[in-house]
Amino acid sequence: MDKFVTHTGNAVPLRRSNVDTDQIIPAVYLKRVTRSGFEDGLFAAWRSDPEFILNKQPYTHGTILVAGVDFGTGSSREHAVWALQNYGFKVIISSRFADIFRGNSAKGGLLTVVLPQSEIESLWDAIDANPELPVTVDLDAKIVSYNAAKVGFEIDDYTRWRLMEGLDDIGLTLKSLDSIDKFENSRPLFKPRTQTLND
Protein backbone atom coordinates (compact mmCIF):
# COMPACT_ATOMS: atom_id res chain seq x y z
CA MET A 1 0.00 0.00 0.00
CA ASP A 2 1.35 3.46 -0.91
CA LYS A 3 1.83 5.97 1.89
CA PHE A 4 -0.72 8.74 1.92
CA VAL A 5 0.46 11.97 3.50
CA THR A 6 -0.84 14.67 1.20
CA HIS A 7 -2.35 14.65 -2.26
CA THR A 8 -3.10 17.39 -4.75
CA GLY A 9 -5.24 16.71 -7.79
CA ASN A 10 -8.33 17.53 -9.78
CA ALA A 11 -11.65 16.93 -8.09
CA VAL A 12 -14.77 15.47 -9.70
CA PRO A 13 -18.13 16.74 -8.47
CA LEU A 14 -20.50 13.73 -8.32
CA ARG A 15 -23.75 15.42 -7.41
CA ARG A 16 -25.59 12.32 -6.32
CA SER A 17 -26.53 10.90 -2.94
CA ASN A 18 -26.89 7.24 -1.96
CA VAL A 19 -24.38 5.97 -4.46
CA ASP A 20 -24.47 2.26 -3.58
CA THR A 21 -21.81 -0.29 -4.39
CA ASP A 22 -23.97 -1.82 -7.13
CA GLN A 23 -23.76 1.54 -8.87
CA ILE A 24 -20.06 1.88 -8.17
CA ILE A 25 -19.51 -1.52 -9.76
CA PRO A 26 -22.37 -3.70 -11.03
CA ALA A 27 -22.36 -7.43 -10.23
CA VAL A 28 -21.64 -8.46 -13.81
CA TYR A 29 -18.18 -6.91 -13.47
CA LEU A 30 -17.27 -9.06 -10.48
CA LYS A 31 -16.24 -12.10 -12.50
CA ARG A 32 -12.70 -10.95 -13.02
CA VAL A 33 -9.99 -13.01 -11.31
CA THR A 34 -7.65 -10.09 -10.67
CA ARG A 35 -7.72 -7.22 -8.20
CA SER A 36 -6.84 -4.81 -10.93
CA GLY A 37 -8.65 -3.83 -14.11
CA PHE A 38 -12.00 -2.97 -12.52
CA GLU A 39 -11.88 0.62 -13.82
CA ASP A 40 -14.01 -0.33 -16.83
CA GLY A 41 -16.81 -1.38 -14.48
CA LEU A 42 -16.68 1.81 -12.39
CA PHE A 43 -20.10 3.49 -12.54
CA ALA A 44 -20.68 1.33 -15.60
CA ALA A 45 -24.39 2.07 -15.94
CA TRP A 46 -23.84 5.84 -15.80
CA ARG A 47 -20.79 5.94 -17.99
CA SER A 48 -22.79 4.87 -21.03
CA ASP A 49 -24.32 8.36 -20.80
CA PRO A 50 -22.01 10.84 -22.57
CA GLU A 51 -23.26 13.57 -20.21
CA PHE A 52 -22.00 11.68 -17.14
CA ILE A 53 -19.41 13.72 -15.30
CA LEU A 54 -16.57 11.21 -15.75
CA ASN A 55 -17.06 11.40 -19.52
CA LYS A 56 -16.38 15.11 -19.59
CA GLN A 57 -13.04 16.88 -19.74
CA PRO A 58 -11.11 17.55 -17.58
CA TYR A 59 -12.87 15.25 -15.11
CA THR A 60 -11.67 12.07 -16.84
CA HIS A 61 -8.39 12.54 -15.01
CA GLY A 62 -9.77 13.39 -11.60
CA THR A 63 -8.21 11.82 -8.53
CA ILE A 64 -10.54 13.22 -5.85
CA LEU A 65 -14.22 12.30 -5.96
CA VAL A 66 -16.59 14.68 -4.22
CA ALA A 67 -19.88 12.86 -3.78
CA GLY A 68 -23.27 13.38 -2.15
CA VAL A 69 -24.37 11.94 1.16
CA ASP A 70 -24.34 8.18 1.92
CA PHE A 71 -21.66 7.04 -0.45
CA GLY A 72 -20.91 3.30 -0.67
CA THR A 73 -24.08 1.77 0.75
CA GLY A 74 -25.33 -1.74 -0.12
CA SER A 75 -23.35 -4.89 -0.84
CA SER A 76 -20.05 -5.30 1.00
CA ARG A 77 -18.09 -6.09 -2.18
CA GLU A 78 -14.47 -5.02 -1.88
CA HIS A 79 -14.50 -4.58 -5.64
CA ALA A 80 -16.08 -1.13 -5.20
CA VAL A 81 -12.89 0.15 -3.60
CA TRP A 82 -10.72 -1.60 -6.14
CA ALA A 83 -12.71 -0.07 -9.04
CA LEU A 84 -12.32 3.47 -7.68
CA GLN A 85 -8.61 2.96 -7.11
CA ASN A 86 -8.06 1.24 -10.45
CA TYR A 87 -9.65 4.25 -12.12
CA GLY A 88 -7.19 6.53 -10.34
CA PHE A 89 -9.06 7.95 -7.36
CA LYS A 90 -7.01 8.57 -4.24
CA VAL A 91 -9.61 10.32 -2.09
CA ILE A 92 -13.39 10.22 -1.79
CA ILE A 93 -15.06 13.16 -0.05
CA SER A 94 -18.66 12.92 1.14
CA SER A 95 -20.76 14.07 4.06
CA ARG A 96 -21.46 10.45 5.07
CA PHE A 97 -20.13 7.02 4.11
CA ALA A 98 -21.54 3.53 4.60
CA ASP A 99 -19.58 1.75 7.36
CA ILE A 100 -18.48 -1.31 5.41
CA PHE A 101 -17.35 0.77 2.46
CA ARG A 102 -15.33 2.99 4.76
CA GLY A 103 -13.73 -0.06 6.37
CA ASN A 104 -12.94 -1.61 2.99
CA SER A 105 -11.45 1.68 1.81
CA ALA A 106 -9.14 1.90 4.80
CA LYS A 107 -8.10 -1.71 4.17
CA GLY A 108 -7.20 -0.89 0.59
CA GLY A 109 -5.58 2.52 1.14
CA LEU A 110 -8.33 4.72 -0.30
CA LEU A 111 -8.80 7.82 1.89
CA THR A 112 -12.38 8.72 2.76
CA VAL A 113 -12.88 12.27 4.03
CA VAL A 114 -16.07 13.40 5.75
CA LEU A 115 -16.99 17.08 5.37
CA PRO A 116 -20.24 18.81 6.33
CA GLN A 117 -22.75 18.92 3.46
CA SER A 118 -22.41 22.73 3.32
CA GLU A 119 -18.67 22.38 2.67
CA ILE A 120 -19.38 19.79 -0.02
CA GLU A 121 -21.69 22.27 -1.74
CA SER A 122 -19.07 25.03 -1.59
CA LEU A 123 -16.47 22.68 -3.03
CA TRP A 124 -18.83 21.64 -5.84
CA ASP A 125 -19.42 25.30 -6.68
CA ALA A 126 -15.72 26.05 -6.66
CA ILE A 127 -15.03 23.16 -9.04
CA ASP A 128 -17.86 24.28 -11.33
CA ALA A 129 -16.30 27.74 -11.45
CA ASN A 130 -12.90 26.24 -12.30
CA PRO A 131 -12.90 22.61 -13.43
CA GLU A 132 -9.09 22.59 -13.31
CA LEU A 133 -9.11 23.71 -9.68
CA PRO A 134 -6.31 22.02 -7.75
CA VAL A 135 -7.57 20.55 -4.49
CA THR A 136 -5.19 19.43 -1.77
CA VAL A 137 -6.02 16.83 0.83
CA ASP A 138 -3.47 16.94 3.63
CA LEU A 139 -3.87 13.92 5.89
CA ASP A 140 -1.04 14.99 8.14
CA ALA A 141 -2.71 18.33 8.91
CA LYS A 142 -6.25 16.94 8.41
CA ILE A 143 -7.13 19.80 6.05
CA VAL A 144 -8.75 20.01 2.62
CA SER A 145 -7.65 23.19 0.84
CA TYR A 146 -8.52 24.90 -2.45
CA ASN A 147 -8.39 28.54 -3.50
CA ALA A 148 -8.26 30.36 -0.17
CA ALA A 149 -10.41 27.81 1.63
CA LYS A 150 -8.99 25.55 4.31
CA VAL A 151 -11.44 23.02 5.72
CA GLY A 152 -10.49 20.74 8.59
CA PHE A 153 -11.74 17.14 8.85
CA GLU A 154 -11.72 14.42 11.49
CA ILE A 155 -10.30 10.91 11.13
CA ASP A 156 -9.48 8.35 13.81
CA ASP A 157 -5.80 8.22 14.79
CA TYR A 158 -5.35 4.53 14.03
CA THR A 159 -6.59 4.76 10.44
CA ARG A 160 -4.69 7.99 9.85
CA TRP A 161 -1.47 6.42 11.13
CA ARG A 162 -1.97 3.31 8.99
CA LEU A 163 -2.61 5.35 5.84
CA MET A 164 0.31 7.71 6.48
CA GLU A 165 2.62 4.76 7.06
CA GLY A 166 1.19 2.96 4.03
CA LEU A 167 0.38 -0.06 6.11
CA ASP A 168 -2.30 -2.42 4.86
CA ASP A 169 -3.44 -5.17 7.24
CA ILE A 170 -0.72 -7.40 5.87
CA GLY A 171 1.89 -4.69 6.24
CA LEU A 172 0.78 -4.18 9.82
CA THR A 173 0.98 -7.86 10.60
CA LEU A 174 4.42 -8.03 9.07
CA LYS A 175 5.51 -5.59 11.79
CA SER A 176 5.04 -8.56 14.11
CA LEU A 177 7.29 -10.68 11.94
CA ASP A 178 9.57 -11.49 14.85
CA SER A 179 6.66 -12.82 16.86
CA ILE A 180 5.51 -14.90 13.90
CA ASP A 181 9.00 -16.34 13.43
CA LYS A 182 9.24 -17.10 17.10
CA PHE A 183 5.82 -18.72 17.17
CA GLU A 184 6.65 -20.85 14.15
CA ASN A 185 9.86 -22.08 15.69
CA SER A 186 7.99 -23.37 18.70
CA ARG A 187 5.18 -25.12 16.81
CA PRO A 188 4.97 -28.82 17.63
CA LEU A 189 6.53 -31.00 14.98
CA PHE A 190 3.60 -33.40 14.83
CA LYS A 191 1.39 -30.73 13.18
CA PRO A 192 0.63 -31.73 9.61
CA ARG A 193 2.28 -30.30 6.50
CA THR A 194 0.83 -30.41 3.03
CA GLN A 195 4.24 -30.80 1.42
CA THR A 196 7.84 -30.84 2.50
CA LEU A 197 9.34 -27.38 2.60
CA ASN A 198 11.15 -26.67 -0.63
CA ASP A 199 13.10 -23.64 0.48
Binding site: V33, E78, T194
Partner: peptide, 17 residues
Protein backbone atom coordinates in the same frame (compact mmCIF):
# COMPACT_ATOMS: atom_id res chain seq x y z
CA UNK B 1 -7.81 -11.81 -6.11
CA UNK B 2 -5.79 -12.87 -3.09
CA UNK B 3 -3.01 -14.25 -5.28
CA UNK B 4 -3.26 -11.16 -7.47
CA UNK B 5 -2.83 -9.01 -4.38
CA UNK B 6 0.34 -10.90 -3.48
CA UNK B 7 1.64 -10.38 -6.97
CA UNK B 8 0.86 -6.63 -6.93
CA UNK B 9 2.75 -6.16 -3.69
CA UNK B 10 5.58 -8.52 -4.53
CA UNK B 11 4.82 -10.94 -1.70
CA UNK B 12 5.00 -14.72 -1.68
CA UNK B 13 3.13 -17.49 0.09
CA UNK B 14 4.76 -17.71 3.50
CA UNK B 15 4.03 -21.37 4.20
CA UNK B 16 3.29 -23.39 1.10
CA UNK B 17 3.63 -26.45 3.32
Amino acid sequence: QAFDGLRLSGRKVRRTD
